[in-house]
Design a protein around this nucleic acid. Structure first.
Length: 794
DNA sequence: GAATGGCCCGGCTGC
DNA sequence: CGGGCCATTC
């Protein structure tokens, strides 16, 4: 890992570059590049911003630029930092660079995501960052567990101030670079937030743990610290810093790269403001748009030629992005053939939609299309289930990316918790998770006593065990169990000191009785869990192999960190399988055939709780643009007439984004079921048993809003852009308390209400439709639109 | 102290 | 619909 001390004085010029074997132009030979691309590769000195349109050869440019830095400008690889958006992208970039400049150079480059890069820096400079060497990274789940404990400790009322809201607010502050000391509470909620914030930071510190935001923040504080030598070292370490997907960085990340590149000022950022889709987690498009203001001497390159997609796909993409506001002026174009039209599919239900998708995919596969060149996208994970069920039934090889993730399954998390306690016994959250798994007779009362002792002594739970056992405050089986557990864990810590991660994992399964416990159960569920355990062991083994291939030594720590920092997109395996994923996960990927499903109002664009839907709509639009531009040759966009959500049938109209697609590149298909349903409604004048107010997206096709409706009768046609209408009798029937009764009980603006997730709020406006909705200003959340039936009077 | 059943409630996207 | 939490029961 620490190769740089030996290589610091290495004569890079003496290295023989291996021949290029993959048909890519060698570094320095820029013949194959267009003028803009060549400029982005050649001009390596000073700040630069590259606006890279979708499919404009961005990855190639970044790879060549780095290769040029190494091979032509002889920059030592360990002095180049490239930040990518996923670990997978980092891996691929390294692979390509290995082919271009050889293993020896590529190996020592710093390539990784923000989080992985920061973790790497913190592993080196843990002391300066105020951490112990074996710190662990807490994910959201762990954060929630910490917060639950804090709520108990501080006796905060979860009804009044939901933990979810508190944690959400803390995260938001940290994403903006704020710690408790920077937080000035205004209202009662914020006073609770501050109290919880302080406790949260205290808990993480005593657990020797950091959360995702801390990884960035701690590096930020180091690198911005004018007085620290580590900070000075970091500021001068990288001669070149490159950041991909720059449109999705947040303030803290921006400050980090600014500081890291402050000495040499060779900061090259690459992005596309049209593809900024992570605003909701702190990303800020204005950073890329204002880059020129922050770096007045920055060179600006625009890559506008799309090499990826057919003309039809590019035209469609331009159609959805054109209405977007505040775009960096640029014009994406292609010289590719128009190809086939984009197909708009009208289906009846999500099942019908899935059936269509699966049928078309089966056809593509039988025509010889590789399965891994086919992808199905949706806006939210919840939509994946029907698709997955049908694919399984039809035996279409597929993989679902994200969603219920492997590493989030209970049994997997259990074993991981064991491993984390072993690397870092200070981690209370992990100890609490496994203290009674498998059941060993340590119940709530014993745990409460243990927590009490830990609090009294100001120690961790692990250290409190011997104290409690010796204190005489417990006896009988719990006492013995606790003593046994302590012995078990201490023994495993010893194993870990000498054994490989794989050996330790095996030992955990045996010594803890976990494997035996699972095997005794003998249910279908426990069998699946046993399989998952096997898969997890495989993952440990694979990690060991990969690390040793890279000349590094695997430890539990490196394994755990990789697991915690892995992104959904990293799961995508190089296997011949159809990929199912959210559009967010699809960012940066491309496929020959793309199915974009669920293109209905309120599903996509997804109806937001935020009344200032305008900003959200902008981001939804960019998301649609990202989705469309993933397709190389064939693109299907489907929408359904009715969609079931939480057991409710909702009637949907086609997304307004469909209406934005230029007609001349579209063709329409209607599923058989949809056709039948249309005919029936036309024949009988009966539309799905609904009241007259409820209408169907029916015969007027989504994009033909200018044509005459073909039907007579009570079918009221809706156009793209209109919203869902819910059955009138639905909400009252199934909700515990009636929207109607609360409505008649006089919910007016000014009413004080409570919501399970958002806590206390004041009503700003009431919308008395069939399903009453109120705009409420919540403490700490701002204004939200919520259904009245989810509100309680305060 | 563990297991089971009922009830409540949700509203995304994710390192 | 289905997951998570709580209360009741063994």
């Amino acid at each position: 890992m620490e190769t740089e001390n030996e290589t610091e004085d290495l004569d890079v010029a003496s290295i023989d570059f291996p021949p290029i074997d993959d048909g890519e132009a060698p570094p320095g030979d820029l013949e194959d590049l267009n003028p803009a691309q060549a400029e982005a590769v050649r001009e390596v000195s000073g700040p630069m911003v590259v606006f890279a349109g979708a499919g404009s050869g961005k990855t190639r440019v970044i790879t060549y630029r780095i290769a040029t830095l190494l091979a032509v400008h002889r920059v030592p690889p360990y002095r180049v930092l490239a930040v990518t958006f996923t670990n997978k992208a980092a891996g691929e970039m390294k692979k390509r660079l290995t082919r271009l400049v050889g293993e020896d150079l590529a190996r020592d480059l710093w390539v990784g995501t923000f989080h992985a890069t920061c973790a790497r820096i913190l592993r080196r400079h843990f002391e300066a960052a105020g951490l112990a060497r074996n710190f662990v990274v807490y994910d959201d789940d762990d954060g929630r567990a910490v917060m639950r404990r804090i709520y108990k400790e501080l006796k905060i009322d979860d009804k009044r101030f939901p933990a979810r809201a508190t944690l959400g607010r803390i995260r938001k502050e940290k994403q903006e670079g704020n710690l408790p000391k920077d937080f000035i509470p205004g209202d009662p909620f914020e006073r609770v937030v501050l109290e919880a914030f302080e406790a949260y930071e205290r808990h993480l510190a005593s657990a020797n743990a950091v959360d995702f935001d801390d990884l960035l923040l701690r590096v930020l504080f180091l690198v911005e610290d004018a007085k620290s030598t580590v900070g000075a070292d970091l500021r001068g370490r990288f001669r070149h810093v490159l950041v991909d997907e720059f449109q999705d960085v947040n303030r803290v990340q921006y400050r980090i790269v600014r500081a890291l590149s402050s000495e040499y000022r060779n900061l090259c950022v690459v992005g596309d403001d049209d593809q900024s889709i992570y605003r909701w987690r702190g990303a800020d498009v204005t950073i890329v748009r204002n880059f020129r203001r922050d770096y007045p001497d920055a060179q600006i390159v625009k890559l506008e030629q799309n090499y990826r997609s057919t003309g039809s796909v590019v035209t469609a993409a331009l159609g959805v992005i054109k209405p977007a506001k505040d775009r960096e002026p640029k014009e994406l174009f292609t010289e590719n053939d128009a190809g086939e039209p984009v197909t708009i599919v009208a289906a009846s239900t999500e099942r019908d939609e899935a059936a269509f998708v699966v049928e078309r995919i089966t056809a593509l596969l039988s025509q010889g299309a590789p399965a891994d060149e086919i992808a199905v996208f949706y806006r939210t994970h919840a939509q994946s289930r029907v698709l997955e069920e049908l694919m399984r039934a039809e035996r279409v090889p597929h993989q679902v990316i994200g969603g219920f993730r492997f590493f989030e399954r209970a049994e997997v998390k259990d074993l991981l918790a064991y491993l984390r306690v072993i690397t870092n016994p200070q981690s209370d959250v992990d100890l609490l998770r496994i203290v009674n798994v498998p059941a060993r007779g340590i119940g709530d009362t014993t745990i409460e006593r243990l927590t009490a002792v830990a609090t009294e002594r100001g120690s961790t739970l692990f250290d409190a065990i011997p104290a409690l056992v010796a204190s005489g405050r417990i006896k009988g089986p719990p006492k013995k169990s606790l003593a046994d557990l302590h012995r078990l864990l201490s023994g495993l810590v010893k194993t870990a000191a000498t054994g490989s991660p794989f050996e330790v994992a095996l030992e955990v399964l045996e010594a803890s009785g976990y494997r035996e416990w699972l095997e005794r159960e003998q249910t279908a569920e426990s069998e699946a869990r046993i399989l998952n355990m096997g898969e997890l062991l495989n993952a440990v083994k694979e990690h060991e192999d990969e690390m040793s291939a890279a000349g590094e030594i695997a430890s539990l720590g490196t394994f755990l960190e990789r697991v915690t920092l892995s992104a959904a997109a990293d799961e995508l395996k190089d296997q011949p399988k159809v990929a199912l994923m959210t559009i967010h996960a699809a960012k940066g990927l491309e496929f020959e055939h793309v199915f974009l499903t669920g293109m209905e109002e309120d599903t996509f664009p997804l109806k937001s709780l935020d009344p200032e839907g305008r900003c959200d709509l902008e981001e939804e639009r960019r998301l649609a643009y990202v989705a469309i531009t993933r397709a190389r040759t064939r693109l299907y966009i489907s929408h359904v007439q009715m969609r079931t959500l939480y057991g409710n049938v909702r009637y949907a109209s086609p997304s307004r984004f469909i209406a934005d697609l230029p007609k001349e590149v579209l063709q329409q298909e209607v599923t058989t079921q949809m056709r039948t349903s249309l005919r029936r409604s036309i024949d009988t004048g009966y539309v799905g048993g609904m009241s007259e107010r409820v209408v169907t997206a029916a015969p007027r096709l989504a994009w033909s809003r200018d044509t005459e409706p073909r039907t007579a009768g009570p079918v009221v046609t809706r156009q793209a852009g209109e919203r869902f209408v819910e059955r009138e009798d639905e909400p009252a029937r199934r909700s515990g308390f009636a929207g109607a009764s609360l409505q008649s009980s006089g919910l007016v603006s000014g009413s004080r209400v409570a919501h399970r997730s958002f806590g206390l709020g004041v009503v700003v406006e009431v919308d008395d439709s069939s399903d009453p909705t109120a705009t409420v200003r919540f403490e700490g959340w701002g204004q939200k639109r919520v259904k009245v039936r989810f509100l309680e009077a305060d």
